[in-house]
């Protein structure tokens, strides 16, 4: 009896999660967009900057390709979250989600299914990217991989939730590009994914300090170098980063649930 009640509660979450998995596998173009594009960015930007840019605040000899590596994985997670967001807006107006909204399920279970779906897809792509660590000059330890995967999951769950906060408030995808360029991309740019905080002007340092994703990237970076913390250079501590990342993810999820609840259709 108890088992049945639990199943009933989990059923909508599971079914929405599973739908995301199936859809992703049937839309190859999404894989290209979310995986190949960041890969190109990493090779072109990383390679291009490596001659002129030695990231300050990192140990002697850290190549830009290596510094940029955790950042580009974060971009993979961000792109997947953006995809989930755009599809939610369309889905809600004239697609599958219309019917979900009149089904006897709570809005929080809808958001949970969506966020878990988005986070899982992001995680799969992040793990694929993790295989490229040797190419970046990073030697991973087993515990480092486990920790990095866990942090990736928390970050992508948080980013998807952040995207859903926007998606549930938007009436059409028209305005989404503006929001993406004004909110989501700057959050990534200022997170220490692209350049370190060391040596930048004070105002920019503050902006980076206030960016929640800074702590996600820092936690991820520290996990990658779990066996060799000295190689990280200047970055917020692991404990602080973990606490703030989990906090950000929790707040984003609650905000997404509220946005979904307030949304009429």
């Amino acid at each position: 009896m108890r088992k049945q009640a639990t199943l009933r509660l989990c059923l909508p979450v599971m079914t929405l999660w599973w739908r995301e998995m199936v859809r992703f596998c049937r839309q190859r173009s999404r894989l290209v967009g979310a995986f190949v594009q960041p890969l190109l960015f990493w090779i072109l930007l990383g390679g291009g900057f490596s001659a002129s840019f030695r990231p300050p605040g990192t140990p002697e000899g850290t190549a830009y390709m290596e510094y940029f590596y955790p950042g580009i994985i974060t971009l993979v997670l961000l792109f997947t979250a953006i995809f989930a967001t755009i599809s939610t807006v369309e889905d809600r107006r004239e697609g599958f989600l219309q019917a979900v909204l009149v089904a006897p399920v709570t809005r929080s279970s809808i958001v949970l299914g969506q966020a878990l779906g988005g986070a899982t897809l992001a995680l799969v792509q992040g793990i694929l990217f993790l295989l490229l660590a040797p190419a970046a000059g990073i030697s991973l330890t087993m515990s480092g991989v486990v920790a990095a995967v866990a942090v990736m999951f928390v970050i992508s769950f948080g980013l998807t939730s952040l995207g859903l906060v926007i998606a549930w408030r938007m009436e059409s995808v028209q305005g989404f590009h503006a929001i993406m360029n004004l909110i989501l991309i700057p959050i990534w740019l200022l997170s220490g994914a692209f350049f370190p905080a060391a040596g930048v002007p004070v105002w920019l340092q503050w902006a980076m300090r206030l960016d929640p994703l800074t702590y996600g990237v820092a936690a991820f970076r520290r996990c990658l170098y779990l066996g060799n913390p000295a190689a990280v250079g200047e970055a917020p501590s692991l404990l602080l980063s973990l606490v703030l990342t989990v906090l950000f993810t929790g707040v984003a999820f609650v905000a997404a649930t509220n946005a979904a609840r307030r949304s009429a259709a």
Binding site: Q27, G95, V105
Partner: peptide, 21 residues
């Protein structure tokens, strides 16, 4: 507007719907 997911089969659409109920 259709609320069927065009990427999924007819049965898959019905199964998802059933789960929601």
């Amino acid at each position: 507007h259709p609320s069927l997911d065009p990427q999924l089969t007819v049965t898959e659409n019905l199964m998802h719907h059933g789960h929601l109920y």
